[in-house]
Simulated assay, not measured.
Amino acid sequence: MAADTRDRILDALETLLLDDGADKATLEAVASRAGVSKGGLLYHFPSKDAMMAALVRRLGERSDVQRVEAEAAGTSLAQWYLQPPDASSAEEVALYRSTLAALRSIDGRPGEVQQAVIDVMGMWDRALQREVTDPVQAEIVRLVGDGIYLAALLGLPHTPPDLHRDVVARLLCGGSSTVDPSGRGSAG
Rank of each mutant, 00 (worst) to 15 (best):
F45L: 02
S47R: 05
S47N: 03
D49T: 12
D49C: 12
D49L: 09
D49G: 13
A50R: 11
A50I: 07
M51L: 14
A54L: 11
L55V: 05
L55E: 11
V56S: 04
R57F: 02
R58Y: 04
L59S: 00
L59C: 00
G60C: 09
G60F: 03
E61G: 13
D64F: 12
D64W: 13
D64E: 15
V65I: 06
V65W: 00
R67K: 12
E69W: 06
E69L: 13
A70Y: 01
E71M: 03
A73S: 11
A73W: 01
A73Q: 08
A73F: 02
L77R: 09
L77Q: 08
A78V: 07
Q79M: 09
W80F: 07
W80Q: 02
Y81L: 09
Y81D: 09
Q83E: 11
Q83L: 07
P85R: 06
D86R: 01
S89Y: 05
S89M: 05
A90S: 09
E92S: 14
E92V: 12
A94N: 15
R97Y: 06
S98H: 03
T99I: 00
T99Q: 01
L100E: 13
A101P: 14
A101E: 13
A102S: 15
A102N: 10
R104G: 15
R104A: 11
S105E: 03
D107F: 06
R109H: 14
G111M: 02
E112P: 14
V113P: 03
A116N: 04
A116H: 04
A116I: 04
I118M: 09
I118Q: 08
D119Q: 00
D119G: 02
V120R: 00
V120C: 01
V120W: 01
M121G: 09
M121I: 08
G122R: 04
G122Q: 01
G122P: 03
M123E: 15
M123H: 15
D125R: 08
L128F: 06
L128E: 11
R130M: 11
R130V: 11
R130E: 09
D134Q: 06
P135K: 05
V136A: 14
Q137H: 12
E139S: 15
E139L: 15
I140L: 15
G145T: 03
G145W: 01
G147N: 05
G147S: 07
G147F: 03
G147P: 02
I148W: 04
I148Q: 09
L150T: 13
L150R: 10
A151Y: 02
A152W: 08
A152V: 08
L153N: 06
L154H: 07
L154E: 10
G155H: 08
L156G: 05
P157I: 10
H158P: 14
T159A: 06
T159S: 08
P160G: 10
P161C: 07
P161T: 11
H164Y: 04
H164T: 02
R165D: 15
R165N: 11
V168Y: 00
A169N: 12
A169H: 14
R170K: 12
L171Q: 13
L172Q: 08
L172H: 07
L172N: 07
G174R: 06
G175I: 10
G175L: 14
S176Q: 14
S177M: 13
S177W: 14
V179F: 04
D180G: 12
